Computed example of a mutant assay.
Amino acid sequence: MQLEIWSDIMCPFCYIGKRRLETALAQFPHRDDLTITWRSFELDPTMQTTPGQSIHELLAERKGVSVEQGRQMNAHMAQVAREVGLDFDFDQVVPVNTFLAHRFLHLAARHGRQDAAKERVLAAYFTEGRNVADLDTLAELGAELGLDPAEIRETLQTDAYAQEVRHDEYQARQIGVRGVPYFVFDNKYAVSGAQPSELFLEVLDKVWEEKHPAPQVLASGPACGIDGTDC
């Protein structure tokens, strides 16, 4: 069973949606038979790092509101995150272009560590105030996951995995992704947004049952019951 998830590192709902999915997976009896692939999606490919600019100022600028209103919007998002056990620190968030971080996730995938890398980068961005567009930072995060920091630096200093990121984004356009997170189950069903865990579990069960239908009983005759009382 396959699950592809398009998301961006700078998207708070992507982290919240990840936690809600994980809550559903904890209740899904076939979770070990599920393969998750994280797909790249940049909310703003033209994003430029502005030294000293806070995420509150960036949000205010993009929404056409005051900085204080931007701060209030982020405070509300932080409250939503706390409901799923996440501690967002928007005062420390470093707004950056996420292209390099997406390439890092593709590198981690080659070593079988993509899911762990996704979690680590999201935590670094939202809770630790780390600059995830910094090569040394990504090398440090990768080393925590058992990856070779020298390989990370050497690889990301080239254009390696740039094509993979662009291909993910091309696929997103082809299937009509307009916002993230966006979850595609077995290339058949899609769930858009950080939906409640109950909905994720419902979809997981539905997809599994369609792939593994129960045998259809065509005829029924005399038989012993489970407790033996009918024998």
Rank of each mutant, 00 (worst) to 15 (best):
T35L: 11
P215K: 11
M1D: 00
A172D: 00
D44L: 14
A214Y: 09
G70N: 06
L218S: 12
F88L: 08
Q72I: 10
L34T: 07
N97H: 07
G85L: 05
H30N: 10
P181R: 11
N97V: 13
R62N: 14
Q114S: 10
I16H: 05
L201S: 04
E209I: 03
L86I: 07
D227Q: 04
G176A: 14
T98I: 14
A133F: 06
C11R: 00
N131Q: 08
G85D: 02
L58S: 01
C224Q: 06
T50N: 03
L25W: 07
L141N: 09
E198D: 14
D89V: 13
P12G: 08
D89C: 11
S192I: 06
P213R: 09
A123P: 07
Q174E: 04
P196C: 11
G52P: 06
E68Y: 12
R20C: 00
A223R: 14
H111F: 15
T46I: 06
N97C: 13
D87H: 13
A26P: 04
W6H: 04
P222V: 10
T98L: 11
Q2M: 09
D89K: 09
H56C: 06
I36W: 06
E68F: 12
A124M: 10
G193Y: 12
L43E: 06
L105D: 00
L138K: 09
V207F: 01
A150I: 09
L138T: 12
L204H: 05
I5E: 11
F200G: 00
E198W: 15
P51G: 04
G70K: 07
A124S: 12
E151S: 04
L147E: 02
V96F: 01
A123T: 15
N187S: 15
R39K: 15
G64W: 08
F99A: 12
L145M: 14
E83R: 14
V80E: 13
F90C: 02
V94D: 02
C231H: 04
G129A: 08
L135M: 08
D205E: 15
V184Q: 02
Q114K: 09
S40A: 13
V207K: 05
H167W: 12
L201E: 04
E154Q: 12
G228E: 07
L138P: 15
I9E: 00
T155L: 08
V96W: 00
E140C: 02
G85A: 01
A78K: 04
P95I: 11
V184W: 02
P45V: 09
Y170T: 00
R39A: 09
D136A: 14
M77Y: 02
V177Q: 09
Q92G: 06
P149Y: 03
V184K: 03
Y170P: 00
E164P: 00
A75G: 03
A26V: 07
D230A: 09
D168M: 06
L147Q: 01
